[in-house]
Design a protein around this nucleic acid. Structure first.
Lengths: 181, 181
DNA sequence: ATTATTTAGTTCACAAATGAATATTTTATT
DNA sequence: AATAAAATATTCATTTGTGAACTAAATAAT
């Protein structure tokens, strides 16, 4: 019956550990560390919850993300590369997932007309039907996950997270990205 | 030379797909979906960047998280269960990771005195040395990942993310958590 | 006390994800 | 036009992560 999710979460212990770390190693940046750990924890919980829901439909969260990316692309189909980028998966993993979705009759692969290196992935009728059958459940889940945030907070969160993503992508292509002898 | 990380990110395509989805399936909640996908993308990028840095030290991001949890716990040691919760990993995975860290001479395991079911994990001298050797690099990374956010924004982000985590944890223990016949 | 229930950790079989190497096609360079 | 470079997707070996079944210890219930 805890009505205040702000206080009920299990993050306090982690926060204490970060504070202790700051005392042992003063340069350790508390706030960035807190944000990164929050992101990780939320991601894990969201992933688990989605898996629990989607299992009923024979899918997992990754499958769902891929299907939804295709569902959200008008007509012409999406290439594995675009999907990998959009879904935050590596190419090799995408091949595996798409193999499974294809074997399950949910997606179709066609070689792309303009660029024969690319594939155009589309949903089959069966794929569309499955997506629209599970979407009500997933909508409920998404709403529950963001319950208690008003429009302003939602917009704030979106802006802040986009900033973080921008930073992260800059790092990935920037000077910190490996390669010191 | 893109000075505005807000606009340089590759998220626009995903956002367009979400909008398309909303047109095809009007109940689909745009803002929650955006937030969840942002979280996933950020997590993935953060994870990759950390892995790139930590590889030089023979570790990966998960190992690092575990070591840091122990590093941040005053003295008495942490149990695998606490770590699993704090690090967002499942128990089975923790056993494997701790085996590796133990084999590498970085952590020590001792049966807990009060409760003989529990283990108390501590860092060895070697583990502490490694942590303090890699921390400067990781501090730089954390700062880069949150660059451009002032204290207010950082606090806002923290509050909003804690809210989301609270929601997610409530779902995990709540009515949506599986088990319909 | 004795028996159940819960909690902590591990094991094991399997699923999911990754890095590195490869084949093929496109684009740039000469 | 011929060749070099970059991009797309796949394969394969390995690492990383998970659910379910299991053991042992603590706690609750009878």
């Amino acid at each position: 019956m805890n009505k205040d999710p702000l206080q009920s979460c299990t993050f306090a212990a982690t926060e204490r550990r970060i504070d202790t770390t700051c005392r042992r190693f003063p340069e350790f940046p508390r706030n960035p560390a807190v944000l990164v750990r929050l992101i990780k924890r939320i991601h894990q919980q969201v992933h688990d919850a989605a898996n629990a829901v989607l299992r009923r439909y024979g899918l997992n969260h990754t499958d769902y993300n891929i299907l939804m990316m295709i569902y959200g692309s008008d007509g012409a189909g999406v290439s594995p590369g675009e999907l990998a980028l959009a879904a935050g998966e590596k190419g090799a993993n995408l091949t595996r997932i798409c193999n499974a979705l294809h074997d399950g009759g949910l997606i179709a692969r066609a070689p792309s007309a303009e660029d024969r290196r690319k594939l155009a992935l589309t949903l089959t009728a069966q794929g569309i039907a499955l997506v629209e059958r599970l979407l009500p459940d997933m909508c409920r889940l998404l709403d529950a996950q963001t319950q208690g945030l008003d429009a302003t907070q939602m917009a704030q969160a979106e802006a802040l997270l986009k900033h973080l993503l921008g930073n992260a992508e800059q790092i990935a292509t920037g000077p910190m990205a490996g390669d010191a002898p």
